[in-house]
Simulated scan of single mutants.
Amino acid sequence: MKMADSQDIEKGSSGSLYQPFFHKDEKQQNSHDNGNLFMVILCTFVAVMGSFEFGSSIGYSSPTQQGIMEELGMSSEEYSMFGSILTIGAMAGSISCGRVADLIGRKGTMKMSSIISIAGWLIIYFSLGPLSLDVGRFLTGYGIGVNSYVVPVFIAEISPTHLRGALLTVHQVAIATGLLVAYTVGAFVSWRTLALTGMIPCAVMILGLYFIPDSPRW
């Protein structure tokens, strides 16, 4: 009997001695896979807060134009500068972020961009004139310029190949959602209040970064 059981195991048959161990390993593997999938989704959710911030920063200047110009007495030229200086900050952020991400990691870079963006939003909120508005707008632009690089890189590096395309799509969806929220909320609140709401995704990202690992490629 023992010899027959040994022969069954060597041949890879599903005998009574082999079957329980097979099921146990399968359950453990499924549990491990589910845990990995949850962490990948959590990492993606935290990262795309930067994408959401990207969209909300771009959309901020449209619904707030009338309120800012009336309250601060800005001319059309001054407001045009305020709106466009975001792209200058984004250029600076996108140029410098590659080296920064290699030095301090993807998580560190996302945290840095969130802190810079929060500083920019606070400056905008407390602004009393065009100069401080431009400084705040430049800082938020720098933050989203960094996010435009580090967020998709981080998602690509932590996601399995069969989910990579779908998860990277979330990055684009979050940008569009941020734009939509900025336009919608901006129609009902003041420009200073809308600046405060711009800090929410940054705060969520900073908090979430404490619960996720850094990229395995770094």
Results as ranks from 00 to 15, higher is better:
Ala47Cys: 13
Ile104Asp: 04
Val100Lys: 12
Val173His: 00
Ile115Asp: 02
Gly35Arg: 14
His162Lys: 14
Met49Lys: 05
Pro201Leu: 10
Ile206Pro: 10
Glu53Ile: 12
Thr140Gln: 06
Ala4Lys: 08
Ser31Tyr: 04
Ile9Phe: 14
Gly93Leu: 00
Met39Pro: 05
Met110Val: 05
His32Met: 09
Pro216Ile: 15
Ile41Glu: 00
Ser96Ala: 12
Arg106Pro: 07
Tyr183Arg: 10
Cys43Gln: 14
Asp8Ala: 12
Met91Glu: 00
Thr44Asn: 13
Gly59Thr: 02
Ala119Tyr: 07
Phe38Ser: 04
Asp214Ala: 15
Gly145Gln: 11
Ile118Arg: 14
Gly108Trp: 13
Arg137Asn: 02
Gly73Pro: 04
Gly198Leu: 15
Asp25Asn: 06
Phe82Val: 10
Leu131Phe: 06
Leu167Val: 05
Ser215Met: 13
Met74Pro: 02
Gly108Asp: 05
Gln28Ser: 09
Arg99Cys: 00
Val185Pro: 02
Gly55Arg: 10
Gly145Ile: 07
Ile200His: 09
Lys111Pro: 01
Ala176Met: 13
Ser6Ala: 10
Phe138Val: 02
Gln29Trp: 11
Ile200Cys: 11
Pro213Glu: 06
Met199Trp: 14
Ala156Phe: 11
Arg137Asp: 01
Met49Asn: 13
Tyr60Asn: 03
Pro216Gln: 07
Leu207Ser: 15
Thr64Met: 08
Leu131Ala: 07
Ala166Phe: 12
Ser16Ile: 01
Tyr149Ser: 12
Phe38Tyr: 15
Arg99Lys: 06
Met1Val: 06
Leu168Cys: 14
Val173Thr: 08
Gly35Phe: 13
Ser84Leu: 01
Phe154Asn: 13
Met199Pro: 10
Ser61Asn: 07
Phe45Cys: 07
Asp102Gln: 10
Ser159Val: 11
Val40Asn: 10
Leu17Ile: 06
Tyr210Phe: 15
Asn36Ala: 14
Thr197Gly: 04
